[in-house]
Design a protein around this nucleic acid. Sequence first.
DNA 1: TTGTCAAACTGGTATATACCAGTAAAGCAA
DNA 2: TTGCTTTACTGGTATATACCAGTTTGACAA
Lengths: 242, 242
Amino acid sequence: MQEQLVGEDSVPLYMRVRDQLAIRIEEGSLTPNTRLPSERILADEQGTTRVTARLALAQLEAEGRIFRSNRRGWFVSPPRLIYKPTQDYSFSENVISQGRVPATETLDVTPTEINAWLATRTGLAVGDPIVWLRRRRQIDGRPVLVENIYLNPKRLPAIETYDFNRSLWKLLREQYDVELQGKHIEMYPTALVGPQASALGVTIGTAGLYVTRCSHDAEGGFVEFDEEFWLHDALSIQVEVY
Amino acid sequence: MQEQLVGEDSVPLYMRVRDQLAIRIEEGSLTPNTRLPSERILADEQGTTRVTARLALAQLEAEGRIFRSNRRGWFVSPPRLIYKPTQDYSFSENVISQGRVPATETLDVTPTEINAWLATRTGLAVGDPIVWLRRRRQIDGRPVLVENIYLNPKRLPAIETYDFNRSLWKLLREQYDVELQGKHIEMYPTALVGPQASALGVTIGTAGLYVTRCSHDAEGGFVEFDEEFWLHDALSIQVEVY
DNA sequence: TTGTCAAACTGGTATATACCAGTAAAGCAA
DNA sequence: TTGCTTTACTGGTATATACCAGTTTGACAA
């Protein structure tokens, strides 16, 4: 039987700091993409230390309410993009339809060969030619995903000569008369590391969502395999089944 | 121009500790559900402090490779359960088919009323009766999700009198002749907080995946609305589209 | 006005330490 | 053997501090 800490002290300090900030975000005094006070200032305001302030910030980050920009500060997360992987073929159109501004950058285009990992996913044989496309996509100027796209050059001759900063889906339809049909989608939460983290300009270990999509054309031939690394707070996935 | 730290020191210490552990997991000297050395021991082994050891552990946790059990220690994550929300109707059958052992606990059954939030999701009116069912589900003895299920008592009379520790899907089919048809699924990564975190026995703020599923019967009538809170490392979602 | 550079500021990483709150094991008593 | 209590151990929370590595800003020079 102890005279234990009660009331406000039954909740850890870092959670109370979290709550303070969460209220400011909900009230609207901190709006999307606004910078939060710096960690040192937060710690002073709350009469605590940076370590504890960082715990509170990490908590809000895990909830998807704030994000950090490397050595620039913490910012309020904008609303999640609604993403319907079974329906949406165009990232740009989807972003625009939700009143946001999309941007796409092609990071790299490399003709290469199918490895064992791709072979099991695409149905092609190890050593078959494949075109590896790497893109970064933004919403309202914030990079939210990087993707590795593997295109079947047998089905899409000279694909590497096109401009990939526009809609890939339109390119396939208009230049190759491909209508994507079957899709196998897989996704799970994980941490962003290595080239993905640096391409998105986030700290190694930032929470992300990993999505792969394997598409076939109407005849069932393999067209493209897509591997997407999203910031975990940037999207909400919706699937309709009938 | 500085004589800068090179080689191993260009990688942060906590990442090197992470790598050490990751190797031990990949090699198989640390197998799923094995306890890792305690934070203090890890710190000693690596010649560093608990704070840094915890950074390394948090990194692996974010990647979904290890998980923690409150004040018991850190453990190697078992493989993710493959979950096909568009096809799977039975959690238990799905778990068994992947060679694992499922368990379901009913936490609570409460007849209540539709609130504004549920009204927009179910299509029912505020104040309509609804049965609120709360369950926890395990894989191989580890709680991996809690769910709030809202059942339509108009479509499912006396539903609250049944045993919910078995398959809900079978119950609906056998007792009410309901074949679930249309589904609207929504999901996004977030942190587990409040009752969800405590029901799963995890620290507040643990990464999770939030999934909602609204099901209708063949005639389009609302049957049930399901809200699931998963541990982020426990599942991989697969969707097939044709 | 423009460009450059230094200073101030930001988060990132790290050490050292302390006490609290649950868990689990050891030891002891019935 | 059984049940209880003590003890050791675990992660959880917190303070105080320091230096590093990029970003941003402001002063100053051209």
